[in-house]
Each structure stands twice: as C-alpha cells, then as structure tokens.
Design a protein around this nucleic acid. Structure first.
Lengths: 228, 228
DNA sequence: GGGCTATACTCCAATTTAGAGCAAAATATG
DNA sequence: CATATTTTGCTCTAAATTGGAGTATAGCCC
C-alpha cells in the first residue's frame, strides 16, 4: 500500500464528494460518473476506498442490513484538500482504446461483411451510449438529477459526450455507406477517390511542418502521477 | 507465456503485416500506427513479438550492425491467418481515458484559473495531434506514405481522427469561452442558462426510455478476448 | 578522444486486471 | 410457503501489464 494517489484515487474521491456511498453502490454507479472517462476494474474500486480511508481521505462507517455488513464512505476535509491540490497539477492527455480501428486497418484481409459488422457494432455502441446520455439529459431537464445543483458544470460534460457520440455515430454511418458502395475490399480504382476525400479533410492549416515528431502530448505521463 | 492472443497481439501483427520491422522501429513507429487507438507500454511490444514469434505468427531474422544484433520480424502465413480469424469475432467497444473530465467534475473545489489551464491543455493536446494528422494527410497527398496503396482504407481512419480531434478542439474552445465568461466557479445564476444549453444538445429523439440500464456495450469484454 | 544521442534491447518490482468465490438478503416461481 | 434465482456486498488470487532502470554498442560532432 503506497501513499501515492493515482487518477483512479481522485476519480473515487470525486465521486464520493457528491455524497456518501456504500462501496457496492460506488462500484455500480461508476457508470453514471466516470465509467466512460476513466474505466477501471471493479475490484480496483474496492481496493481504492480502503486505501483512501486508511489515508484519512475517506471515512468509512460500518452499517448493518440484517446480518450483512456494508461500509458507507464519505469524503473528509483532508480528502477535499487532496482534490484541491490535484487540480493545480498538469492533466494527463486523453487517450482511447479503439479496437475497431485496428480491424479497419487490416480489413482487406477479411470480408466486406466482416468489416461492415464491425462498423455496425461501433455505430450500435455509440447509439446505445447516446440513449444513456439522453437519459442523463432528461434527468437534468426534469430536475431529478442527483447533482442538480451542479448543472452548470455537468452541462459542459454532457455536451462533450453527446458531441463525441454523435461524431462517432456519424463517422460510422458515412464509413458504412462508403464501404457498402464498394464491390469488394480490393484497392482497384478506389485510391483516387480516397485521395480526394483526404484532401477535403479539415485540418487547421497553420504549420503543417515536415518534422515527423510525435506530439509532445504523449510525453506527459498517461495514467498515474509518476515523476521522472 | 499463454497462447491467448490479445488485441495487443493483433495490433502488432497488423503493423508487421505492413512490412518487416526491427523491434525497435516497431516500438518507435507505433505512433504512426496504433499509438492513438491502442496505446500500450513499449516493453509490452518487445514481449509480444517474442511471443508471436514463438507461436509461429511472426518470423524473426537476426541481423547485425557491427557487433550489435537486431531482430527484424516479418509476418508469416499463419500470422495472416490469425488476423483473418480475428476479423470474424466481435469487436470490443471503444473507451477513453479522459482525466480532464474528472477535473471538470470537481472544478468548483479549485480556482477558475486551474480549470482554464486544464481545458487549455486539452485544446493544446488536440491541436498537437491535429498537426500530426495534418502531416499524415500531407504524406498521402504527396504520395510518399508507406501504405500509399492502401489510401482507400487509410482515408477512413484519417477521417475519424480529424473528426475526433476537431470535435475535442471545438468543445474545449466553447467550454473555455463559457467559463471565461463567468465571474467565478460558484453556481450563482448559472444553472438556468445551463439547462437551456442541455435542452439544446442533439440526442436522437427515438426512445429516451426511463430504464436507467447501463449500456450493454459495456458488457462485451473491453480488452482481451476472455470468454465468459 | 570525449561527450552526446540513437539504436537495441532485457529485466523487474509494483500495479492492475478479470474473474472466481463466498455468503447473506431480496425477490420470483411454483 | 418452500425453493430457486438474483442481487447485494464484498475478498482473494493468478496472470497480465506497466513504467522505468539497466546494459551495451554505434555513430556522430567537435
């Protein structure tokens, strides 16, 4: 048990800051909070609350439902202080896990149907998450969200998700349309059209340098706060 | 050393399928290929090529530069076959690590300057990656990309990235504008406006059910191919 | 010939993950 | 009302993964 706080620690602290939770609820309700921005194993949450509580950043109270015990955690002043300090440090850059891209890359090895199925999955996932976002939106509009008093902040996050998901959905849609218009997955006669497509993609023109340097963003630590 | 192939295995196979690479190049050039869709530790790549090679999916040839040995890997037919089989299985859903969202969530604990700095980082990261995407775009337009013969597929991926990055950049931009227009980070009088903002967010209307079920997308395995 | 950086890895401790287990409570089913 | 199933509320562990330290040669530049 190290004393080092990771982003996962702060995610748990942030969620508990909303109001007290039992560990089980905390693990379940992550969906509503940070499942989509900081997905971690369930067992990691159970481990984390213990750690944070032993460090005095959370306070655990044992409760009983019949014979079965459960622990309800609340954030302490020290915990809030830790969050405050964290806010002054640099953020780690965003990253994705997007397996479908790797499949697209090697798509010509497989069949047209296979890559279409993959893209339909992506589109389906985006739509499902959009439906979920729609529920969150409704909760706020109807004034029944748990963090109703924080709409002014939450709105910014909801905006992000809906934009992201709409973008993914739209991309999957137009990519499906493109691929469905093909006879097969061979390159025959498709590259000309593709170059036109690429030419049209909007990259802010300023400084398309030739230095093939990987973006510096990648040099800041990605997960924990390990220092060099 | 298990025999199980993970998405990381397929990412390496996919990259080697382009042309033979030395392990070092492979690890370095991941930026160009799957760094942004499947970011993994460098040491994982070194481990993976050995594993794949012991399984006969890659073939390693020792070369010498003076006294120093290096291994150049090429994909085997068996390796291509593995990729082909993989394409028939279901994709794992996309996921993000986006620490800035957690910070936004607890932003009122900190200062306005802090959350502004965080959002500027996000915008900066997006811009940097956009610049990198711009270089890729240029490579294709000038016909000097390594996978020039695959533009018709690559264009679809480049489209995705540029859309994603522009979306992130635009979101960061408008969120910064919003926050900069505030006097402070207190909720005072901001929630009305926020509700209007939320109301305007485009969620496809079909079926905004009230069942607060977490999207099924999350139930498919995220990383490896573990079966239930 | 000294210093620096790039190449080319290996190794390892510390985390982190996915999932198996276990037990009690609540709910459904016959 | 007896029994089966599901949900709650966790703990434990093997296996995988990570970030970094370490080692060593090569090739430049001054």
């Amino acid at each position: 048990m190290t004393e080092r706080l990771t982003t996962t620690s702060y995610a748990v602290l942030a969620q508990v800051a909303v109001h007290p939770w039992s560990t089980y609820e905390l693990a379940q309700q992550r969906v509503r909070y940070f499942r989509y921005v900081w997905p971690r194993a369930e067992s990691a949450i159970y481990r984390e609350v213990k750690r944070l509580s032993s460090m005095g950043l959370l306070e655990g109270k044992k409760e009983h439902v019949g014979k079965r015990a459960r622990t309800v955690y609340s954030i302490t002043d020290k915990g809030r202080e830790a969050l405050r300090k964290w806010l002054a440090t640099p953020v780690s850059p965003f990253a994705m896990d997007f397996e479908a891209m790797i499949r697209l890359f090697v798509a010509p090895l497989g069949t047209k149907d296979q890559i279409i199925a993959t893209l339909q999955q992506v589109r389906g996932d985006a739509r499902e998450m959009l439906r979920f976002s729609g529920q969150i939106k409704q909760e706020f509009l109807e004034g029944r969200a748990v963090t109703q008093d924080q709409v002014y902040i939450r709105a910014l996050a909801v905006d992000f998700f809906i934009s992201l998901l709409n973008m993914v959905e739209a991309w999957a849609e137009r990519t499906l349309a493109e691929i469905e218009s093909w006879d097969d997955l061979s390159p025959d006669g498709k590259n000309e059209r593709a170059l036109e497509k690429i030419r049209g993609l909007p990259v802010t023109p300023e400084s398309v340098e030739t230095t093939p340097v990987p973006p510096r963003a990648q040099l800041r630590p990605r997960r924990g706060e390990r220092r060099a």
